[in-house]
């Protein structure tokens, strides 16, 4: 049982406020991804959970035990580092067994556990090698195996796949997800790659400027972004925004068209994902500017009411630059945001 609770955690580096009052509960065996651009505070939060960084204020609880004043070794965690941190002076075997040796486990127990995780990570033939003789992908596997060998309650990962090439990254993504699901540990995973986040996470915490903007399942984050930042950050290409003016009774005018929306007096922004539109007889009037065939789809960058607007259309659509399109948004996929608070309005 290893639930992680982060209570009112804030971190200041000198004058710089890296984290503002973070509250987050990660349940037992959950795969939580901390997602955000560089400098958003995701790595700082992970390092605070790990104990490599001390929070300025707030508490960290792991498995019902307050740990924020304990050193990393007493927190029941293991960590996988971005640059793998495989010890260059030790063999792969001794690297994986390093933590077990520190616990003074008997030799045969160390050998048994090292061999088990080495097999799990498919590196049993590398056990006698040194880090300098390994490829990036192999080092990555050693780093994960070393963490798993500890049989920790919580495994923390700091952009573990970011130094691998695209193909290897995709392969490791699936493998890592499988291995972690089997190991029954709680996982906290930091990344800036939304595809990685979407594909691996049970839950994503989207972070921005030292705050968690939204913590929800991948599909929820995608479909119902809680704030403009999330809508613009998740999805490739991101959501489209258009200014909207209320005409009363929950009716809104957007680029000359009328839509149903929230019944409020404020000015709102209309938002729609590029793939949630199709050409139709009536809809938003768009002038196509750039056409990018992506194989499965057609990405059309166009001009709607003087602003940039993207649509992902069926690849059969015939359209060329300068064409006039009428795009009809799927009504149940339209979202509304308050420009003042930047939050979603139902």
């Amino acid at each position: 049982m290893a639930e992680i609770q982060i209570k009112n955690v804030a971190k200041k580096f000198g004058e710089y406020q890296a984290l503002h009052d973070i509250n987050l509960t990660i349940s037992d065996r959950e795969f939580m991804v901390l997602l955000g651009a560089s400098g958003c505070g995701k790595t700082t939060l992970l390092r605070i959970i790990c104990g490599l960084e001390t929070a300025t204020t707030g508490e960290v609880w792991i498995g019902g035990r307050r740990v924020d004043h304990l050193p990393p070794k007493d927190r029941g965690i293991a960590m996988v580092f971005q640059n793998y941190a495989v010890f260059p002076h030790l063999t792969v075997f001794e690297n994986i067994g390093f933590g077990l040796r520190m616990q003074k486990l008997p030799n045969d127990e160390v050998t048994r556990r090292v061999e088990r995780v080495a097999e799990l990570m498919h590196i049993e033939m590398l056990l006698k090698r040194y880090s300098g003789e390994l490829s990036g992908g192999q080092r990555q596997r050693v780093a994960v195996a070393r963490a798993l060998a500890m049989e920790p309650d919580v495994i923390l990962m700091d952009e573990p796949l970011s130094n691998l090439d695209a193909l290897l990254r995709m392969e490791m993504r699936a493998e890592l997800k499988g291995v972690l699901a089997e190991s029954n540990t709680t996982a906290v995973y930091v990344t800036h790659d939304q595809v990685e986040a979407m594909s691996m996470a049970d839950r994503i915490s989207v972070m921005h400027k030292g705050k968690i903007v939204q913590a929800a399942s991948p599909i929820e984050v995608y479909r119902n972004p809680a704030a403009e930042f999330v809508a613009g950050f998740i999805g490739n290409p991101p959501m489209n925004f258009l200014p909207a003016t209320a005409t009363g009774n929950g009716q809104w005018r957007v680029a000359g068209q009328t839509f149903d929306g929230p019944d409020t007096e404020k000015t709102l922004k209309f938002a729609i994902r590029p793939e949630d539109m199709a050409p139709a007889d009536t809809g938003l009037v768009a002038i196509a500017k750039v056409i990018e065939p992506l194989g499965a789809h057609l990405l059309v960058t166009c001009d709607v009411d003087g602003g940039m607007f993207r649509a992902v259309l069926d690849s059969d659509t015939t359209v060329k630059a300068g064409d006039r399109l009428t795009l009809a948004p799927q009504p149940d996929r339209v979202r509304w945001f308050d420009p003042e608070t930047t939050l979603a309005v139902a």
């Binding site: 790990c50 104990g51 490599l52 050193p71 990393p72 070794k73 965690i77 293991a78 960590m79 580092f81 971005q82 640059n83 941190a85 010890f87 260059p88 002076h89 390093f98 933590g99 520190m102 616990q103 070393r146 500890m150 923390l156």
Partner: peptide, 24 residues
């Protein structure tokens, strides 16, 4: 990172130094 890795694997500052930094 090497030192930090040692800390997460059960080392104190001192043992991380003697087991990881010193040999290197």
């Amino acid at each position: 990172e090497l030192e930090e890795a040692a800390w997460t694997l059960g080392c104190t500052r001192l043992t991380a130094f003697t087991k990881v930094v010193l040999p290197l």
